[in-house]
């Protein structure tokens, strides 16, 4: 049993540890479903395991429960805005560089490879990618402090570890998220806590 769905590297469902690396790649930027058999040779032995982390209990075989990620987003990964009649989309100008950077942070697919690769089982790359996206956009600034605190608290509560800057997460992220996101989350978190 293993999770899979889109077969094009965007849904984040597939989650296999292949030959000791999440998603099995030595080069960056692809998911399990984007690892083609032509990358292997006749007679190779391939070792397959599930994501391993206290935050991701195993359901069966290689299928794990990643609802902890949903719970972290539920704790604050949004802007509180009702469906209704918000202002015109161009009312607030956003510099192209900020929009592009926010898009890079927003590309996280929620697969959990970062957690699986980390020796501490930390979810900082996942949390910081969402916090970064919203921190870079004016719409996200309104609740930036509350968000940073709430999502980090939830992450801790659900059993993920702390970050010690090994960068293993960055090395295996299929969407090439970087620890610059983690640095940004740390700044947001410290700012928020100092204001308390």
């Amino acid at each position: 049993m293993f999770d899979h769905d889109c077969r094009e590297g965007i849904c984040g469902m597939c989650s296999l540890y292949i030959n000791g690396t999440p998603h099995g790649k030595t080069e960056r930027g692809a998911t399990t479903c984007q690892l083609y058999m032509r990358k292997f040779n006749e007679g190779d032995v391939i070792t397959i395991e599930p994501w391993r982390s206290a935050g991701f209990p195993v359901i069966k075989d290689c299928m794990v429960d990643r609802s902890a990620f949903d719970k972290i987003i539920q704790a604050g990964g949004y802007t509180t805005v009702r469906t209704g009649a918000p202002q015109d989309a161009n009312a607030i100008l956003i510099p192209k560089e900020d929009a592009d950077e926010a898009m890079d942070c927003a590309s996280c697919i929620g697969c959990g490879a970062c957690v699986a690769a980390c020796k501490n089982g930390s979810a900082m790359l996942f949390v910081s990618s969402k916090v970064s996206q919203l921190a870079l956009l004016p719409q996200g600034r309104v609740e930036a402090a509350r968000r940073a605190k709430a999502m980090v608290a939830k992450m801790d509560e659900l059993g993920f570890g702390n970050c010690t800057n090994t960068r293993a997460c960055e090395a295996v992220c299929p969407k090439c998220e970087t620890i610059a996101n983690i640095a940004r989350l740390n700044r947001e978190f410290i700012k928020a806590k100092l204001a308390d």
Partner: peptide, 12 residues
């Protein structure tokens, strides 16, 4: 408008 308010990072 709704998506921008949610923080969807459209190209600019």
């Amino acid at each position: 408008d709704q998506c921008v308010a949610q923080g969807v990072p459209f190209a600019r």
